[in-house]
Amino acid sequence: MTSYRLGVLEGDGIGPEIVPASVLVVDAALAAAGASPAEWVDLPLGAAAIDTHGDAVPESTLTALEGLDAWLLGPHDSAAYPEPHRSKLNPSGTIRKRFDLFANIRPAKSFDGADAVVPGTDLVIVRENTQGFYADRSTYKGSGEFMPSPDVAIAMGIITRPAVERIAVEAFELASRRRGRLTIVHKANVLKLTTGMFRDVCREVAARYPDVAVDDFHIDAMTVHLVRRADDFDVIVTENMFGDILSDLAGEIAGSLGIAPSINASHERAMAQAAHGSAPDIAGRDVANPIAMILSSAMLLDWLGARHQDPALVQAAALIETAVAGTVRGGTRTRDMGGTAGTRAFAEAVAAGVKR
């Protein structure tokens, strides 16, 4: 059995609560699946790292990540950092750029026994993570956002064929393993050259996957379709900013942003990161919903299992997903889902479910 070295970066706000909760569940799942225990490596990041290392993402942390198989990243509250740290690229962005984590995979799945705007939602948004219309991802170095005068602000949006092609392949591979349907989201009626290229390159890649049914929608129309009939969609592929917006919307449609997981991945490395933020207003109160982080960790195990052809890790991921759904269905829920369970108690209930 292979043993994996996994990084733990708790981050800010509720991170020191939901990340340890996820470690607890992962340990239980690996044991239940007969896999080797993970070797957890704690690394400084965020406000605490500014205090101890003078940087929100110390170079020692980045160097250590290079030697790990994958890692769990808690949320960060970079808007609250003191200057000059607040104006720097945020911690998750720094790590994504360092390791070229080009694919942001964000599922949205409703739970039986929990409120959802569209019950039966079960979709995955595949978001290109390195380019698009966010300025911090438009250039190799520096920012694609600048002001030539005090009254003029300019932002660049970058779309390249190689980046679109590799995210399209990820999306089609995923759709071929799921229900065989893929939706391309763009704004080619207005952004003809940039998102028009995104749509067209995805269509070219579609020719390699004749068993996957393909359609496409403008971003504004897609928001309406998700609210009305999210349960009709399977895999959605889109550029960076559109994917960010749609995945938050889809998380709420499925029941709560607190249940929205994600991983950021390249072909060589992956990072589990819940789609939600650091929620500083509830930090330290044991009321945060750890589902998104727990399910992100399950996605990470599944990614590692596929990459290393390790069925025990794939089984551990499936055990976590089943246990989370069973825990919610059985009535144990956190406050945002209408329940009373605390963060730790919910994680312990999931870990117990995994063992059963």
Rank of each mutant, 00 (worst) to 15 (best):
G7P: 03
L9G: 02
G13Y: 04
I14Y: 02
P16W: 04
E17I: 07
I18R: 00
I18S: 02
A21W: 03
L24W: 11
V25W: 10
V25M: 07
V26L: 14
A28P: 05
G34W: 02
S36E: 15
W40K: 04
A48H: 11
I50H: 01
T52P: 04
D55Q: 12
A56S: 12
V57N: 00
T63R: 14
T63L: 13
D69R: 08
H76P: 10
D77F: 13
P84K: 08
K88L: 15
S92Y: 13
S92K: 15
G93H: 08
G93C: 11
I95F: 10
R96P: 01
K97R: 15
K97N: 11
A103C: 14
D115S: 15
D115T: 15
G120Q: 02
T121F: 07
T121Q: 02
L123N: 07
V124E: 12
R127G: 09
R127C: 04
E128M: 04
T139W: 12
S143T: 15
P150D: 04
D151A: 14
A153I: 10
E165Q: 14
I167E: 01
F172I: 05
L174W: 05
A175K: 10
S176F: 12
R177D: 14
G180Q: 05
L182H: 09
I184P: 03
N189D: 11
V190S: 09
L191F: 13
L191W: 12
K192N: 09
L193F: 14
T194I: 02
G196E: 02
D200A: 11
D200N: 11
C202P: 09
E204G: 13
A206C: 04
D216C: 05
D216K: 04
H218L: 15
I219N: 09
R229Y: 13
A230M: 05
F233G: 06
V237G: 06
T238D: 04
N240F: 09
M241V: 13
M241C: 10
I245M: 11
G251C: 05
G251L: 06
A254Y: 06
G255Y: 00
S256T: 08
I259S: 09
P261C: 04
A274Q: 02
H276S: 03
G277F: 06
A279D: 05
G284S: 01
R285I: 00
R285V: 00
N289M: 02
N289R: 00
N289H: 00
N289A: 01
A292M: 10
L295R: 09
A298C: 04
L300V: 08
L301C: 07
D302G: 13
L304N: 02
A306V: 14
R307V: 02
R307L: 12
H308K: 10
V314L: 13
Q315T: 14
A317P: 08
A318W: 07
T322K: 13
V324C: 09
V328C: 01
R329H: 13
M337S: 06
G339L: 01
G342E: 00
V350R: 00
G353V: 08
K355S: 15
